[in-house]
């Protein structure tokens, strides 16, 4: 089974046998991978019924939910990990959702497109919103309403007292190369964070 590179990396951060919630789980491929490779007991939350159905077809447990409506249905510390891949920038209140992730989960994992990536900066320097492989849509038809940079995210975590346990940034080939390691906010196209209180 081939998995997106960011999902492959995340799955290595998750302890086998743990209980995991995937926010915006899409077609359930991460959860299916975690179940098959790491015996993870996972649930996914997803807004798009087509995606929920695809997840169900994979045998993954998916709850049709609007993340913007909140996660009040979940109790404190009911999960070991709460994961959210490529969805932080789409939700109405990313800051509150981070708090929610660490309320219902012991640890959180997020991935998002880094708006500090040099191609984004170049586009903005030219006076345009970027259209890149990581951000393929135009400003008028994108679901992204809260784009941020690696630095922005880390500032928010510091402000909220969220402890960053791991950070990996991937370049456009989904590799963690030396440039991206040295200057993540410039050369990282996708940022992956593992964090806790």
């Amino acid at each position: 089974m081939s998995l997106r590179a960011d999902l492959e990396l995340i799955s290595e951060w998750i302890t086998p046998g743990s209980r995991t919630l995937d926010l915006g789980c899409g077609d359930g491929s991460l959860l299916a991978h975690l179940r098959d490779q790491r015996q993870v007991n996972g649930y996914g939350l997803e807004l798009d019924v087509k995606h929920v159905t695809a997840g169900i077809r994979r045998g993954v447990k998916v709850i049709h939910t609007d993340l913007n409506a909140g996660l009040a249905d979940f109790d404190v510390d009911s999960f070991d990990y709460v994961v959210m891949t490529q969805a932080l920038q789409m939700v109405r209140h990313p800051d509150k959702l981070l708090d929610e992730m660490l309320r219902i989960g012991k640890e959180g994992i997020v991935t998002f497109p880094n708006f500090g990536y040099w191609k984004c900066r170049l586009a903005v320097a030219r006076g345009q919103m970027p259209v890149t492989p990581g951000l393929p849509n135009h400003w008028y038809n994108t679901d992204n309403i809260h784009l941020c940079t690696v630095r922005d995210f880390e500032n928010l975590c510091a402000q909220k007292g969220i402890k960053i346990l791991r950070r990996v940034v991937l370049d456009s080939n989904h590799q963690a190369d030396l440039r991206a390691k040295t200057l993540p906010n410039l050369f990282g196209e996708i940022a992956l964070y593992h964090f806790s209180r």
Binding site: R19, N41, V60, V62, I63, F74, S78
Partner: peptide, 16 residues
Amino acid sequence: VKALLDADRDVSYIDF
């Protein structure tokens, strides 16, 4: 669904 989740049961849910 909440009760099934709290009980850690195998559940999927769709609101059509």
